[in-house]
Design a protein around this nucleic acid. Structure first.
Lengths: 355, 355
DNA sequence: GGTGAGTTCTCAACCGGTACAGAAGCCATC
DNA sequence: GATGGCTTCTGTACCGGTTGAGAACTCACC
């Protein structure tokens, strides 16, 4: 005989299956004594409570929310910024008892369609809108919260004002007097290479990368600053090669704007290898204000985003989206935009006179 | 009308529900032309494929594995060692397309019984065996892999030889000539306080903490070394108060063995505040060899565990456990024990003569 | 024309619960 | 003694698929 089910217990005690179910799920629907009898029988038969899957099907609710990530699952545990964000989400979701299901991005292209996992709602983190996995979720009609993505019709959006943050970073360099600025970005699919500022906007993929780049250009181009743009494919790749493209040249820029603190750290290291002193010879600005920024020597000037607040906002938006969907009414879709502030530390100074 | 189901489509096309199901799940069971017709009808009706929940129930397989964590979910994203471990697990599991469900520890005591989530198997990470959530999983008969826990009857176990690693660390101090050694541990529930070495073994909870403590004692007690033990409750708490108990005394030890690199870092900082120079006045040994160990100045002597290997081993064990359970045969339960090696860096030297 | 092997599709029994609409019994009330 | 309102339990129709056992049909071959 197989595993015990509600029916097994009902037969054993001599009650209906509905009553057995109630003993577990709606204690107020039967007398305490009968309930005790049923629970005892269950214990004896090795029954460990209603099968979660069957309950999910019958109730239409799963008790878990999904998190769709842009790249490999590993990414969720290695990227300091993403990690902090997910931690905040987990924290905010803790009181609800919801489990967090990390969805593997369906393999490259559309191969390995990543088995569908049931969930009450999902967080979509900086994925390309319209990509197959996102599209599946949208079409499944699951309550969604888009994080770090352009606004969409039906889903709540939480993101940081990356463009404004980037503008502030660029303005800071401008104010210091820099007239030759390098840019280190991601989202350039064909390996580390240099781009012309004019072409860069189109060559870069990824919402966040595009927004930051736009912000920099907003300020630097009208000011007539000389710009060099180096791009690499992924954020988690070592940025040294791209940094070299920027710095190991005849007439290197006097300052560099980086897509992330991690890339800024790589650039700082590369500069050191090339005998370029920071900030004397080169000013560097990071992005995110991750813990790394303060560990650097000197501490990194960067653009702070409040990852914790982003996580809390995303969790809250997801909860309310789920609630609304459960209630049947479409409700308004919130749009949360968080500020990005410049944090001036030790890696930026006016350019050396010689330049 | 509600959402489209297989029946809706079957009716529309004029075939049986089974055939509609086959169009999605067993393409070889029907003619290509009919399949195309069905798929077209599905598209038109806005059907996005079989409901994952219903499929799970019918097939008895979920496509997700659970991860049960010792403390809050947030913990999974803040602890550098745990994070690296989970990253490795995620990586190793990637080819299978399995999703990773992070299970919230059921609230303190047994309140908030953390809704049951269906899963094909689970990783139980350094949880107390016999605790309610673990017990539930065991009784549910789910394939389990215990990580950093004592061996159990029915489940595979993956852990590091913490005791041996701890012995090596202690021996290292002994070889250097230290005769007065402090110990900084976790698992002491009633706040930061000093323990007598004799009582420590019983006062400490948590398998890993106990093993490491045992390893230290194995070496230090027979050698007649003078020992001071300071313990705090949780690994993620600031270790400065406990460090102070150890160092801010009349005759502080000449070396300290720490439960983790993070705690070692706190201790190093505290020592600095007290005017104790490292390693001149005080030798420090960490544990784990997390990235932090190399960031410290001077770099931390520590005990390396290969977290990556641990993750891979856990993932492999879980996969085979699931496979075996699926096949019905109980099969052998693997026991993987990974080595822990001493890494000598800059925080350990012979004790100053004056002592 | 009968036989056996393939293909293509249908039947109906699951998978293991949930929840709503009563039915039965009991007690108080008018 | 009929009425009404509880509480407690049962019947049954879902939830939305999957799957093995056939039925019907086609085709090749002797």
């Amino acid at each position: 005989m197989g595993r015990a089910t509600l029916q097994t217990i009902a037969d054993r005690v001599g009650v209906s299956r509905a009553t057995a179910s109630n003993a577990f799920s709606r204690p107020d629907q039967l007398s305490a004594s009968l309930r005790a009898t049923i629970l005892a029988a269950a214990e004896e038969l090795g029954y460990t409570g209603p099968d979660p899957t069957a309950r999910m099907l019958a109730r239409g609710t799963t008790g878990a929310v999904g998190v769709l990530l842009p790249e490999s699952l590993r990414h969720a545990f290695t990227d300091e910024v993403l990690t902090a964000f997910l931690g905040a989400v987990a924290d905010a979701l803790a009181p609800t008892g919801l489990a967090l299901t990390l969805l593997p991005p369906s393999g490259a292209g559309d191969a390995a369609p990543a088995r569908d996992v049931p969930m009450d709602g999902a967080l979509v983190c900086s994925c390309e809108p319209g990509s197959p996995p996102v599209d599946r979720l949208v079409r499944r009609g699951i309550p969604l919260v888009l994080v770090d993505q352009p606004a969409a019709a039906d889903a709540a959006v939480v993101h940081v004002d990356d463009r404004q943050g980037a503008r502030r970073a660029a303005q800071h360099l401008l104010d210091l007097g820099h007239r030759s600025v390098g840019v280190l970005t991601v989202g350039v699919d064909d390996g580390p290479r240099l781009l012309t500022p004019a072409r860069a906007k189109d060559a870069v993929t990824g919402h966040v990368a595009r927004e930051r780049l736009r912000g920099w250009l907003d300020v630097l181009r009208p000011a007539g600053v000389r710009m060099t743009v180096a791009g690499q494919s992924r954020a988690y790749e070592d940025a040294s090669p791209a940094a070299r493209l920027l710095l190991d040249v005849e007439d290197p820029p006097t300052a560099v704007l980086c897509f992330s603190d991690a890339m800024a750290a790589d650039l700082v290291r590369t500069a050191g290898q090339l005998g370029i002193r920071i900030p004397t010879d080169l000013s560097v600005v990071g992005f995110d204000d991750s813990p790394l920024a303060r560990r650097l020597q000197p501490a990194l000037t960067t653009v702070r985003q409040d990852v914790d607040a982003k996580g809390r906002a995303a969790a809250a938006a997801l909860q309310s989206a789920i609630e609304q969907s459960r209630a049947g009414r479409p409700g308004p879709v919130p749009q949360v935009v968080l500020p990005a502030e410049l944090v001036v530390r030790g890696t930026t100074t006016p350019p050396a006179r010689s330049a």
